[in-house]
Design a protein around this nucleic acid. Structure first.
Lengths: 236, 236
DNA sequence: CGAAACCTTGACAATGTTCAATCACTGTGG
DNA sequence: CCACAGTGATTGAACATTGTCAAGGTTTCG
């Protein structure tokens, strides 16, 4: 990997050349097939992970053995930043598993922490990115409390579209399987299945396996955003 | 206000003396009675707010006029950081209202942004604090998806206790009114009312208005944490 | 004193979960 | 190549949880 690769990542842009050299030197690039455990609950504490290509899921296990999906990441996303400055070890641990073929880049947390302490530009980038992630979590919480299952699915679909309201007959594909998406949206797979049917009736969608056709985006938008404090395009 | 005041706030500790001077110079200290609007949806964009004493709530209004409680802050908490580096104006706006007599300190976002860009120590402090807030949001999401209403109330009560499990006959007081707490925990006031009764039966609590007596913390802990990925003391 | 806010309760509706059954599809090993 | 197991997905029925609406009690405060 060249320093150029990292410099092209927004998180590392403007970092000092010394930082980029160190990152380049100590970053580890890895490839996985779908379905592998990339980091377990012990390893995640020590690893910053950047997704170069593909999809992965972060999940925890509840006390009674259920899988709780914490996040799903793809190209350009990253995880592990919670363990920076986590001396009291209060950050929540998770397992990382590939849900498609995957290319990642990893760094030891200790190195990243040191670089952030030494490189002001890097620390600013992480601050910006973390503020942004925090906003998304706030939006997620709002959605969980005021939208029903069908609206949450519709909201997810909306955010897969471009932000031009006037489009007609958009066809798109769910980026990962429905069970995972259900859990990601805070509902059971059975609820997802029924809610998607309800949504397709309310908003004139055509569903065929993982393909969804939206004849009129405005109908969907109206159904989804009616209770929300934001309206489409609400991507942040 | 003296620079000492700010230096004693963890968020500003280790900031340069120049930063502290500027903050001291441009910070505005204010007092409010209960029930006042402190910042409206326009002002919040431009204001960093630190709570010196008392309680306040951040809320949004949904499209259909419902109040959505985003957060409740007290001494040592702050808000407004979402608007730092928010050039695209994607951060969610809110209204700030006092829910008790209140003493606050405010700074213009533009100043704070400038100070963070100039003062590396300050940027590191904000990064740490933001990572921590993000963790709490993640925990909140987990709770919303796996705990029922009674468990969420119990979890809130648990986190009001010290982290010593062996205590008996703890009496504590809800820090703000039940309607607000209900909305904060993502449920309707009626649901709160009934769920609190259910919780008191399940966990042998004595409820008298806003006072709650817990004869045996372990019972509560067992009831609350059974589905969770963490167990008490889970305060982060 | 009267209005407003807080809180509770009952009846009922809406929403989501659980459990069991079924089906389609995929990949594997014989 | 086929049988088979495993995964993903859907559906029905019973159930649990939460929300909504209406009513009423209590407290607070001007």
């Amino acid at each position: 990997m060249t320093p150029d690769f990292f410099q092209s990542i927004p998180l590392f842009s403007h970092a000092s050349s010394r930082t980029l050299q160190q990152v380049e030197h100590l970053a580890k690039r890895s490839f996985y097939k779908k379905g592998n455990v990339i980091l377990d609950q012990l390893q995640c504490r020590h690893t910053f992970l950047y997704v170069a290509k593909g999809w992965l899921k972060l999940f925890k296990e509840s006390a009674d053995g259920e899988e709780i999906i914490e996040d799903i990441l793809t190209q350009g996303h990253y995880c592990g930043e919670s363990f920076i400055f986590d001396n009291n070890k209060t950050a929540a641990i998770y397992t990382v598993q590939s849900i498609s073929d995957l290319e990642i880049m990893t760094l030891p947390i200790t190195l990243l922490e040191q670089l952030i302490v030494e490189d002001h530009a890097l620390s600013l980038n992480f601050l910006k990115a973390t503020l942004h992630k925090k906003q998304q979590l706030n939006m997620h919480i709002e959605h969980l409390t005021i939208q029903n299952a069908a609206q949450r699915i519709g909201c997810f679909i909306l955010r897969l579209c471009d932000d031009t309201i006037d489009q007609k007959n958009i066809t798109l594909r769910l980026p990962y399987d429905k069970i995972l998406l259900a859990l990601r949206l805070g509902m059971q797979p059975e609820t997802f299945s029924r809610a998607l049917i309800r949504l397709s009736k309310e908003c004139a969608l055509k569903i065929e396996d993982e393909y969804i056709t939206i004849p009129e985006l405005k109908i969907l938008m109206h159904y989804v955003c009616q209770h929300c404090s934001r309206t489409f395009p609400c991507t942040i």
